[in-house]
């Protein structure tokens, strides 16, 4: 079971990071959601694996799993919704405002801030 959880956390992290490295806002939002799952699962797993031992007090139950990570993760899930909402709104605003949902600054943006064009060969970006 432990192996499955670890693999799930790792897989969600890898997928989340890959999507967050994309250049448009929407994949980044998706990536952030996946990364949130990974982080929540990780924190939850810090209570270690216990099946069928929910932290609901019951005299007939043999023991309980650790309730503290659950309390932490519960609020984290709700907060991550709020965070997703803010980012979605920002992405929407920038798309409506500029007609573009790129997340990297373009050379035009940089020129507007008085910065020299980015050295394309150094990063290999094809903006």
């Amino acid at each position: 079971m432990e192996l499955l959880i670890a693999a799930a956390v790792g897989g969600l992290t890898a997928a989340g990071v890959y999507l967050m490295l994309r250049q448009r806002a929407f994949p980044v939002i998706l990536g952030l959601s996946l990364l949130s799952y990974a982080v929540n699962l990780f924190i939850f797993a810090s209570g270690r694996v216990a099946l069928a031992l929910p932290p609901i007090l019951d005299k007939t139950q043999a023991g309980y799993t650790d309730p503290l990570p659950q309390a932490l993760v519960l609020t984290a899930i709700v907060i991550s919704f709020g965070m997703t909402g803010v980012i979605v709104m920002m992405a929407l605003g920038s798309w409506l405002h500029a007609g573009d949902d790129r997340i990297d600054m373009t050379d035009d943006d940089r020129a507007a801030e008085g910065q020299p064009p980015r050295d394309r060969t150094a990063t290999g970006d094809r903006a």
Binding site: E2, A7, G10, G11, A15, V17, Y18, L21, F42, A45
Partner: peptide, 21 residues
């Protein structure tokens, strides 16, 4: 490059999770 970064991150986090569990 992005895939490499992502896989490295995934492996690292997965290994960390397993080690903790």
């Amino acid at each position: 490059r992005d895939g490499g970064v992502a896989v490295a991150a995934g492996l690292a986090v997965g290994a960390l999770t397993l080690a903790m569990l």
